[in-house]
Nucleic acid binder design. Structure first.
Lengths: 234, 234
DNA sequence: CGGGAGATTGACTGATCTCAACCCGGGTGG
DNA sequence: CCACCCGGGTTGAGATCAGTCAATCTCCCG
């Protein structure tokens, strides 16, 4: 019964419509061992840290995770977020390297682990799965390249506007136009690549200009068009 | 005879020890059509541009290519270089998107083209090839993440030192300790993510400090250790 | 009520960008 | 043959964006 239950959760987990695992056959599916999770993590808890040897994929079933690198002086740079349906740790797993990022829950989250040898077996024997993974890697790569260009060339003001728009696209707005992700000012700064105080100043500038409204950590988007323009997005 | 010759060049091309294509079987190898190249490009010539629909891999047989994105104000940001044995265009090909970078020869180069459907076929049927490609994508992804963190957190001075060290690692030094790649000051600036004048000033500062020597575009590394320290590299 | 984390504001500093002038070497056309 | 032109390189001066430091505020929690 216990076994069945675990299996059921796993099934829910991997058959989400946007999951990489959706193309697995039943025979492949049963190769995934059930004993790893789903584990739950509270806000603030670390899933794995830079330098850890991880060997497997972490599949996010619920919640939001921030994925960041720690710079020379200890400052965090947020690279991306992972949410329901996303996988983490595939870079290190596939290239047999130590983790180069830390992953930390910013909302209570559920995460399943799939061992590296199972995943590698799928890559070698299931062309569709391999292609799917390649496309995920390519998507991330494209986004990383955009990010590099932006950080190198745009002002902090432009980047903050851009980040707000990206957050809107990735996490959507609720029915009152609030961003459905809540970050501390410091996290926002670590995403934009600037100082916390700069983010605060620019946010209140945007508020003055009626582009956004601030209610604690919740941000309401009032004028998306202007933000797009400020961010030099299409 | 002509056919044999083309095939021979292709064979030389793809069986380089560090090529992604080295794991192809003879049967797979003959599936690559011979009519596309190798083409040669002179310094300054564009292979493909941002927004082009490309559908295939560009394999660099000889030369050095700069791969860059054009920012909002027309300024180039160099993302990476491709040299002998590297492939370009796999991101766009595999994710069926338009090219998001421009590729331009900075040395006279020879490049072979492999159509997208052939590559996709290999991905689906040859697990080793798929894994190889995934590892290439993952390697680039790791480097891109490092780059993001560096640009966001390091000073221009630190980044320039780092870039010099990276160029040394990627292109090596000749027997007089000159970097085996020659870039204009502007290209160096577009790599570091700064203004041309800033690069010039910092280069002459490094020269003053006896870390490097400048002979036109050729840069001689005199004190690698100090550069590593300045760049906050391990 | 005290403590602490996060948020805010102000003042100051400085790294870096921009603008402008000038130099240098190579190629070209009169 | 020489003046000119042009692209790239260099230098200087001034402007400014954004980072740092420090003080204060506001919650929230035990």
């Amino acid at each position: 019964m216990e076994q069945y239950y675990a299996s059921q959760i796993y099934s829910d987990c991997f058959k989400d419509t946007n999951s990489v695992f959706r193309h697995l056959s039943e025979e492949e599916f049963v190769m995934i061992p059930m004993e790893h999770g789903p584990n739950s993590y509270k806000r603030g808890e670390i899933i794995y840290s830079e330098g850890n040897r991880i060997n497997g994929f972490y599949y996010v079933q619920k919640g939001i995770i921030k994925i960041y690198k720690t710079g020379f002086d200890g400052k965090e740079q947020i690279i991306r977020f992972a949410k329901k349906g996303d996988i983490m740790g595939f870079r290190s797993t596939l290239s047999n390297e130590l983790a180069c990022t830390t992953t930390r829950a910013i909302e209570d989250s559920n995460i399943c682990f799939i061992p590296g040898d199972v995943v590698k077996h799928f890559v070698k024997t299931n062309g569709k799965f391999a292609m799917e993974l390649l496309q995920i890697a390519c998507k991330e790569l494209g986004e990383a390249n955009d990010y590099i260009t932006d950080i190198a060339q745009k002002t902090v003001r432009e980047r903050l506007a851009e980040v707000l728009i990206h957050l809107k696209l990735e996490f959507n707005l609720d029915n009152e136009n609030f961003l459905q992700i809540s970050l501390t000012r410091e996290e926002l700064a670590n995403l934009v690549g600037t100082a916390t105080e700069s983010v605060i100043r620019l946010l209140s500038e945007f508020k003055q200009d009626k582009l956004i409204e601030l209610h604690g950590r919740k941000i309401k988007i009032l004028n998306e068009k202007s933000l797009i323009k400020i961010g030099n997005l299409q």
